[in-house]
Design a binder for these strands. Structure first.
Length: 528
DNA sequence: GCGATCAGCT
DNA sequence: CACAGCTGATCGC
């Protein structure tokens, strides 16, 4: 599921090996860096495959690239904040303040008012948030005192493409990203190579001459803009299109790599694999010239079919950079297929009782398409999305989806809205804006984490208010705890580096103990 | 005015 | 709790 077709792409005209000479002549890894990894990371045989980091062709890996920020202690951690007195900490490169306590952030931002405890809300008398969402749909005029007009926005009234993207996806930069260190953390760097993964918000990363982007979500592409000039960006053709269309990155820097093809970049054999996350999302497999193999999962949902990928089946993986979003046994959720049939069933039942129901699916910029696609197929109706979202969805070249998209909201009772719109007041206004076309709204909020307490789909209880009913459904695009365990036990990597939830020392310890538990029985190895 | 970044919130 | 943002605000240019 979730795989989208890669049709012809208009971006891939530039040959990939133009930047294959990108390893700068730099000193070797400093001894003080050791293997560059904290000792808490699980290792197979201690040291095996580790000493070789930084050797071989990739040995010119800059020590400055890998030397700073190589341990967890540089990461933000609430527990650590309590521990070390949380003074202002200077970066190695001098001057910069490390993201840390709230006071540090305020200092860094130079926001004296906040530092002094003056709240923003007390200063500005802003409009309530709802007004803007209503304005977005043309339901309410700016500054107009009336109850809103009754018509959906006309195409001609919409802002130009760029404004529309920015409107859909956040403020001025396509969505704010949570505070992170200014220095690229070590787990975004691939040792023995001049590569980083999803590391765009650190400016020019020293020693990095190739920047990989696993998928088009703001917390991964953060920092990319039309001013990007720090090096080539490698990603799938679909992600490449979005980077150009939505962020206006200069195409000279964008290097689309077809899935399932080996590409030689800087002497490293690189293959992108379908990640089962959002459209365009990829796992990245690196095979260094010294034989070391690394797998970076980006964000992914582990699945059985992945175990048949030729690069993963019966292959040694030395280091696994793992999406550990739900690496806790409390996170159990059903398969995507089960959730899709559940959503269809709920909708059919609802429509039987209230035939004039508007069905709404909440979604971010990309991801969760299969939820409304499944509804579209089952109900035999089209999908309405606004111009901003249509532009993105059409760029997928996913014909099964494209054919079902409608620009006219009155064409169909199945609409996609930003997930932030799934609130009673907003949906109620939305319902009213269609006059008497609909009597009720049935909305689905697909997410992975609302499901933590429930164990069965049948136990899900919707919340209703007036004519609006909202279901939170456990449609996850990350691996459940069980899926993660099965994937790790299948792959049996020598070493695992978590890439999510790493800001807290106790969470890191917990994850490492799970990894050890999963890998303790060597006789179960598939990949020995 | 525009773009980047931050706090607070969902 | 955490996902993947959203929104308003400030700051530099």
């Amino acid at each position: 599921m979730g795989a989208s077709e890669n049709g012809d792409d208009d971006l891939d005209s530039i040959s990939d090996d133009r930047h294959s000479d990108c390893v700068p002549g730099s000193p070797r890894l400093d001894r003080e860096d050791e293997d560059g990894f904290p000792s808490e990371v699980v290792g197979g045989g201690r040291g095996e495959g580790i000493e070789s980091f930084g050797e071989g062709d990739g040995g010119s890996f800059a020590s400055s690239f890998y030397g700073s920020g190589t341990d967890w202690s540089r990461l933000r951690s609430s527990s650590e904040e309590e521990g070390d007195g949380s003074g202002v900490i200077l970066d190695d490169d001098g001057g910069g303040l490390r993201s840390g306590t709230a006071s540090e952030k305020k200092l860094k931002q130079g926001n004296l008012l906040q530092l002094w405890g003056v709240k923003m809300k007390e200063i500005g008398a802003g409009e309530p948030r709802q007004a803007n969402l209503l304005q977005m749909w043309g339901l309410k005029r700016k500054g107009a005192g009336d109850g809103g007009c009754e018509v959906a926005p006309l195409e001609s009234e919409l802002p130009p493409a760029k404004k529309r993207w920015r409107r859909l996806n956040g403020g001025s930069n396509g969505g704010a990203v949570v505070a992170q260190p200014r220095v690229c953390p070590f787990y975004k760097k691939i040792p023995g190579t001049p590569f980083t993964v999803d590391a765009f918000r650190y400016g020019c990363v020293e020693g990095c001459s190739a920047y990989f982007l696993t998928h088009f979500h703001a917390d991964h592409y953060g920092g990319l803009s039309k001013k990007w000039s720090h090096g080539p960006i490698y990603c799938t053709p679909l992600t490449a299109r979005l980077v150009r269309m939505c962020l206006y990155v200069d195409p000279l820097f964008i290097r689309p790599l077809e899935l399932n093809e080996e590409h030689i970049i800087g002497g490293v054999r690189v293959t992108l694999l379908e990640a089962n996350h959002c459209p365009g999302a990829a796992l990245i497999h690196f095979r260094l010239s010294n034989g070391q193999c690394y797998l970076h999962t980006g964000d992914f949902r582990a699945s059985k079919p992945m175990q048949a990928y030729p690069l993963l089946a019966n292959q040694r993986v030395d280091v696994l950079y793992l999406d550990t979003t739900y690496c806790n046994p409390r996170y159990k959720f059903p398969s995507k297929e089960d959730v899709l049939s559940y959503v269809v069933r709920v909708s059919n039942d609802f429509l039987k009782k209230w035939p004039k129901t508007l069905i709404v699916v909440g979604a971010y910029s990309i991801g969760k398409e299969c939820v409304y696609l499944a509804l579209s197929k089952a109900l035999g109706v089209k999908i309405h999305a606004d111009a901003s979202r249509r532009r993105i969805l059409q760029s997928f070249n996913w014909s099964e989806l494209s054919e079902r998209i409608s620009s006219n909201p009155k064409d169909t009772n199945l609409h996609v809205l930003p997930i932030s719109s799934l609130r009673f007041e907003i949906l109620d206004s939305y319902l009213k804006s269609y006059g008497n076309q609909y009597t009720d709204v049935l909305a689905f909020r697909p997410t992975g984490w609302t499901y933590s307490e429930r164990t069965q789909l049948s136990l899900i209880k919707p919340i209703s208010k007036g004519k609006v009913t909202i279901y939170g459904v456990p449609y996850s695009e990350h691996s459940s705890f069980t899926e993660l365990r099965e994937f790790v036990q299948f792959l049996r990597p020598s070493k695992i580096i978590p890439t999510v939830n790493v800001g807290n020392a106790s969470t890191r310890d917990k994850m490492q103990s799970y990894f050890q538990e999963w890998l303790k029985d060597k006789s179960m190895s598939h990949n020995s």
